[in-house]
Each structure stands twice: as structure tokens, then as C-alpha cells.
Write a protein that binds this DNA or RNA. Structure first.
Lengths: 345, 345
DNA sequence: TTGAAAGCGCTAACAC
DNA sequence: GTGTTAGCGCTTTCAA
């Protein structure tokens, strides 16, 4: 299995009695090859199950036909969705998408970037991770900047590094919509449960949360804005417990994402309360998680198909030098499910 | 950004006044290069942020340092877990893992296999998808067999294609454990909700389910073995509804996976019953899903770290010709959470 | 310790 | 239409 050399274009050419150029032409399906030769070569290709080496081809054509992608953790449904959709469009365009999980560790992100650079990816898609931190670590910014000088990088999120393209969700607007949704349902005591504040999304949402409330004449209360630390279900559960202990608990809570919303839901149920009977909950991402809990969670929905497509298409454009917008905003909408109810004011 | 040629080893060699061989030696950190040259070259590498082309290197060394992986859908937590762990060990060993989502579509799987072949992956990890079908589609078997003739393929599951290695869970034993767990809790009316029966896991579990019950003097009932079609939460929900309509519903149900278990849980709750008060539910995979529902779902747990490591290590062994077991079984255990309770017989 | 040069497998001028 | 040949960027003998 090991000793045997891979069969090459030379072998095929020789046995078919043609030149390698002819075989190459047939491989790339270019016109101008006599039918008989074409058939003879095809037969040989079948016979030996010959597949041209992408390495050699890439070296020769000086392009790898691969796009790199960085995300903190595909186990997170949000990134899994993005990856899927990106892979789909990349594949449709003849590209391979190589994904790396960075766990939002700066050194790992940089290490993967170096590796992707060596692999001569023709573009890089950065989803979350250190790119979301504010302020941005200097070393990271430098790395990304250097990367962007060689091949286009498009960020799924906001990132003001000059040469990077950005495709993102307007979290402020999204938060605004979520708040309004709850206000419309009659809620006035609304809480926002977030995670670490060094993530720009947290900052944007936090600000929009307060502004929107004020806009509608509701004074934001400090005890209703809680930092749960992490962004997972455990944090959501703990955070919600804290809210429930308040002398005057909120009637509705907005969670930073579905994972935290699911945790919040558990906290409520465990204490014997009902959702949406006693408390309304809404999350962000509208991932599969919203369909797994009872009740199903209302959530801010993004069009992942569109999102993924935009990411890759932007990369494609940038790669072939076509003019394309440096910024793109992905629309969202409130996916109303069963976790929020109308209350009497 | 586009016109500029990538900097090469020649550029470095020239500017440093050494040969490319010397630069190459420095890149691979081989001994026997004078300190001064080494430093000069290093400086240049830094200066230009030079990264050797993996394409050229792969072509020259005739190995790509990449391993391919096929799975139906990373949005499924089970595959996401596997991928993560595989990526980790692959990376630790200097390999890149390229994942493709095949949606369990035969033609897509084959298309991706061809593509990976072209990329000269040094090994292939196949997780689920068409490989789980029984009988195995002939065209697929042929493709896989041809692939395996070139590079080692290791399957995360059972697959009796001669040259493939297998790392899998003993689903029969796992089912047996799940049944015994419920029997021990006093349940006698136990149901099993599965999906399509053309998946070998379904067949194995179904058989073990019946055998184990019989072994313990419980006669399996046809109406307690339901085929819900798909393997998702919707199927679980519908299937559970059917069970609840039975004149004599089961007191416990085993779901094919956590997704279906979550669906079953919803069905129970929506009809006003309690879990585990009125019904006990247990799933398979022990994915994050089990932590998102209330109550948390008991589930059959696999050690994903071990699983992923075994997959890659097997590939690594096979690649360098080291002797290694063709079959490996991954241990499991029952992760007891809150969805099953003891009942009086 | 170092360099020259021959590949690795493919593509794309360029010539016929 | 088809073949010759010069790269693509790196590694690795083989000599020096």
C-alpha cells in the first residue's frame, strides 16, 4: 500500500502514446483534442483511477484552490451553521474550505494562520475568536494585517483592520429589535444577560439595550444587566438564578445567545416557575437549540445561507480583484417561538 | 495585493548570499549550518514574513501532511465532537485535517473522496454517512475500496471492507446497558424509538434491545419499537406522541440519539406529563443537548477524546506502516442525569 | 559546512 | 491538433 508510487500524467501519456500536454488538456477539458486520443486517454484514466495531483497543479498554476476558515469551536451551532454554508458555496465554486478550531486562543489562532499561509490558501474567513476582542491584542492585529497583505481576509464580524472585508450582523439593531419585541408584549422589567464584556458584541448589545429602553421611557436598571462570565448554558443558568433572587425580578430576559437562553430557561423551571407564564426569555442565533427546549425559544434569527454565501462570495470577489463592498450587513429578524408572552402592563 | 509574487526560498537565498539548500536546511532545522548563516537567513525570513509553500514541499517530499475526513453534517454535535478531537491530535502530529460535509448523499461523498484523493491526503477518516447503510451501495463500496488501496482509510463505525480500519462503538452492548439501566430502575414497559432501519446502528440496537429484554424475561412488544423515520428532534417528538397514544404506553423510552430524546421530552411535556415523573427517557451520544433540556437527559456516553485520538492514531500508524489493530472498540458508559427515575414494579 | 542540480507532477507558452 | 519545454518552489542526493 505504501511503496507504490502514485501514477502520474507521464504514465498516462506514455501508455496512450501522446504527450503530457495532451493529457493535461483532456484533464482540464479544453477543446482541440482529437476524439480518438481523448478516448484513449480517458480509458487509461479510468483504468488506473488516475487523479491529478492538486499539489502539482497548485504549484504550477500558483493557486491552491483552497480557502481557510478560523472559528473558535464548531461544536457551537452558530459556527457550525456558518461553516456548512460556507463550505457549500466554496465547493460550488471549485474551492475547498479548510476549517480550524482555535478555541479563541490567541496563540492557536496565530499558529493556524501561519499554517494556512503555508498552505497557500487564497483567502481567509475569520469567524469570531480573538477578532471579537476589544481592544484587539496587538500581536493578533499584526498577524492578521500581515496575512491580509498577502491574501484577502474577510471577517464574519466587525474588525477595523484596513484591508479586511467585513460581513456582520448589526448587533445593536438586533438588540433593539429584541427589546422592542418585549416592550410590545408589555414587558417593562427587562433584563439582559451577557458574557465577558471584552467581546465587542457584548459591548454593542449592552449599549443598544440601554439606549432602546431609554428611548421608550424605561430606565435601565443596573441589576438587570448581568455579566455571567462565559457564554454557555451554565453561565445562563447561574445568571438567571441571580436575577430570580432579586427583590423585584425582571419579567423578561434577553440572553446573549441561545445557549445562555437555554440555561436561563432551566433555572426558571428548576425553581418551579413557568416560561413564558412567569418569565419570558429570548436568545440570539436561532440555532437548533431553540427547537430542543420546551418551550421552544424565541430568538433573533440570521439567514445563515445568505451569511455563508456572502462570506465566500466576498472572498471570491476579493480574490479575483473584482470590486466589492468592504462592509456588508446580514439582515436578521425575530423568530417568534414559544418562550415569550404578552403581559398586562 | 494580487500582482505581487509570493516570496520564495530563492529570494531568501539570494539576499542572504547562500544556496537554497542552506535555506531549506534552516527551515527544517537540520543541523550542520554555521551560526552566522543561520542568523542571516532567519532575519530575512522574519523580514519578509516568509513561509515555505506547503504545495511545493508536498510535491517534493511526496506527502501532503493532510488527512481527510468525511461526515454527514458537523451541525450534529456527535460529529462536531469527533471532528474537534481528531483535529486536535492531527495538529499535534503536524497534520492538517480537512473536513467535508456530505449530507449522507452518496454522490457527494464520492465527489468529496475524489477531491481528497487529488489533494493527496495521506489518510481518510470516514464518519457515518453512506458507510452506515446496510446493505452498502455497491458503487460506494467500490469507491471506498479503491480509495483504501491508495491510502489508509479508517472508519468511525463498522464497515467490512477489507483494507479499512475500524474504530467503533459497540451499539449492541451500549443498548444492552441502557436497557439494563432502565430495568434496574424498575421499568418493564420500555420502548425504543429509532430512525431508518437501513442504518446498521439501528439494526444492531434493535436486535440488542429485544434480546436484552428477553434475557430478563420481558417480552418485547411490537408497538414499543417505533421507526420515526429521521433521526432528529422532530421525529422524536412525533414518535413519542405515537407512544403516548398507546392504550398502554411505555414507562420508559430509549431514543436512538439525544436529538430524538429531546424531541420525545418535548412531546411528553406538551401533553402535560412529567419527566421523569411519568416517563423516563434516555438517549445516546451524551452530547451538549443533554445539558440544554430540563430535566437534563440521561444518555449513553462515549469518550470523545479517546475516540478522536484512536481515529487519528490509527491513521498515523497505518500511514507509516506500523502494525496496528484493524478493529478497535470505544468504551461507553451510562451518563446518569435527571431524565430517568426508579419506579415501583 | 555548503552548493549545484536533479527531481516532485502538473500547466502553459510556443513551435510545428 | 499536438508535442517540447520551461517553469512553479521546495527537498535532497552528491560533490566539493
Amino acid at each position: 500500500m505504501d511503496a507504490k508510487r502514485e501514477i502520474t500524467i507521464y504514465d498516462i501519456a506514455k501508455e496512450a502514446g501522446v504527450s503530457t500536454a495532451t493529457v493535461s488538456r483532456i484533464l482540464s477539458n479544453s477543446a482541440g483534442v482529437k476524439q480518438d486520443k481523448r478516448e484513449r486517454v480517458q480509458a487509461l484514466i479510468e483504468k488506473y483511477n488516475f487523479r491529478p495531483s492538486a499539489l502539482a497543479r497548485g504549484l504550477s498554476e500558483t493557486h491552491s484552490k483552497v480557502i481557510g476558515m478560523l472559528c473558535p469551536d464548531v461544536r457551537n451551532a452558530y459556527y457550525a451553521n456558518l461553516f456548512m454554508e460556507c463550505e457549500r458555496t466554496a465547493f460550488e465554486n471549485g474551492y475547498t474550505l479548510v476549517l480550524n478550531n482555535t478555541f479563541a486562543q490567541e496563540s492557536l489562532e496565530i499558529a493556524f494562520m501561519e499554517k494556512l499561509l503555508e498552505q497557500r490558501v487564497e483567502s481567509l474567513i475569520v469567524c469570531g475568536g480573538v477578532a471579537d476582542w476589544r481592544p484587539l491584542p496587538e500581536r493578533y492585529a499584526k498577524s492578521l494585517e500581515r496575512f491580509a497583505k498577502r491574501v484577502p481576509v474577510v471577517v464574519a464580524g466587525k474588525l477595523d483592520i484596513e484591508p479586511c472585508h467585513q460581513v456582520y450582523i448589526d448587533h445593536a439593531q438586533a438588540m433593539c429589535a429584541a427589546v422592542r419585541h418585549l416592550l410590545t408584549l408589555g414587558h417593562r422589567r427587562i433584563a439582559f444577560m451577557h458574557g465577558f464584556t471584552y467581546i465587542y458584541q457584548t459591548q454593542d448589545k449592552l449599549q443598544a439595550f440601554q439606549e432602546t429602553l431609554q428611548e421608550y421611557g424605561v430606565t435601565p436598571r443596573a441589576e438587570y444587566m448581568i455579566n455571567a462570565g462565559e457564554f454557555d448554558e451554565q453561565a445562563g443558568l447561574l445568571g438567571m438564578k441571580r436575577l430570580l433572587c432579586l427583590p423585584e425580578p425582571p419579567t423578561a430576559v434577553i440572553a446573549m445567545n441561545d445557549l445562555m437562553a437555554a440555561g436561563a430557561l432551566q433555572a426558571v423551571l428548576r425553581l418551579g416557575y413557568a416560561v413564558p407564564g412567569d418569565f419570558s426569555i429570548i436568545g440570539f442565533d436561532d440555532s437548533i437549540i431553540t427547537e430542543l427546549t420546551e418551550p421552544n425559544l424565541s430568538s433573533v434569527h440570521y439567514d445563515y445561507v445568505h451569511y455563508g454565501k456572502a462570506l465566500i462570495q466576498t472572498a471570491l470577489c476579493a480574490m479575483n480583484g473584482t470590486q466589492c463592498a468592504r462592509d456588508q450587513v446580514i439582515p436578521f429578524r425575530i423568530a417568534v417561538k414559544a418562550s415569550c408572552r404578552k403581559i398586562d402592563a
